[in-house]
């Protein structure tokens, strides 16, 4: 019994230690003036790896999710004679919830895990140590560009996801199921407010971007430098990111859309 308590206590302290370490890690990576001439090409390269290369999965997922939402929505609303409201339902679900959350989860799986694996491998093959020995701070050179790329790429991906989703939903509702084009858009526009819906979604995506990128990069840097260590680290990235995104989503939704 006491032994079990001790174990819990120890893992609690361990978690605090890891949080502290990762906090210091992020602070040291980001603060301080970067040498723009050298940092910019690194950043752009990472933005390509993390943003542009994620486009296919984000666009395809957005399209399908939008189409399914529209289809399901129509099926339910048509019983109440309210199928004109399908545009409204589609836009609000996407912009407020599904856009940020699903994009974040996909991003964690695709870009997050590849960041973790890449950094973990650099650590295992002593490239990180080599950088240190060559007098270059690996946190600035390797980590910071990847973190910043994540922060910027993800919100952009969310917006692309939303637009593609709405378009997919439009295709299904108007072109296939016969909802009237005009009411589809006007209902949507009337019920979607730019500031409280779209911008709140953007805020969510920024928060998620921060969480996912931080977790991905830290897990890679902190990984045990063996092949199974890297495997474990990538798994942890995906699991922790997903949990963080879902948890933060609840908190943010309660704050933004709850009526308290």
């Amino acid at each position: 019994m006491i032994a079990r308590l001790r174990m819990i206590g120890r893992s609690g302290l361990n978690v605090l230690q890891i949080l502290g370490r990762s906090g210091v890690f992020v602070a040291m990576s980001l603060f301080g003036v970067p040498n723009l001439r050298r940092a910019l090409p690194l950043f752009i390269k990472q933005l390509y790896a993390v943003g542009v290369l994620s486009l296919p999965i984000i666009v395809v997922s957005g399209l399908f999710i939008g189409m399914v939402l529209s289809l399901q929505g129509y099926t339910i609303l048509v019983d109440y004679g309210s199928e004109q409201a399908v545009g409204q339902m589609l836009a609000l679900s996407l912009v407020r919830e599904l856009g940020p959350v699903v994009t974040a989860l996909l991003f964690a799986g695709r870009a997050g895990s590849s960041l973790t694996a890449e950094i973990g491998l650099m650590k295992a093959t002593e490239q990180i140590t080599s950088l240190e020995m060559l007098g270059i701070d690996p946190l600035r050179y390797v980590i910071a560009p990847r973190l910043l790329a994540g922060f910027i790429a993800m919100p952009l991906l969310v917006m692309i996801f939303n637009v593609v989703g709405v378009w997919g939903g439009y295709l299904v509702a108007v072109d296939w199921l016969g909802v009237y084009d005009g009411s589809f858009w006007s209902n949507m526009q009337n019920s979607t407010d730019f500031y409280s819906d779209v911008m709140n979604g953007v805020i969510k995506s920024i928060v998620f971007a921060f969480a996912v990128s931080w977790i991905a990069v830290f897990q890679g840097y902190d990984s045990v430098p063996t092949s199974e260590g890297i495997g474990r680290a990538t798994t942890k990235t995906v699991v922790y990111s997903s949990l963080a995104v879902l948890g933060l989503d609840f908190i943010l939704t309660a704050v933004m859309f709850g009526d308290f």
């Binding site: 390509y48 952009l156 917006m159 692309i160 939303n162 526009q189 819906d197 779209v198």
Partner: peptide, 17 residues
Amino acid sequence: FMLMGFASLAVLALQVS
């Protein structure tokens, strides 16, 4: 990519909301 992102934001602003 960045252009697409910002254009999406514009579309969301004008067409969707």
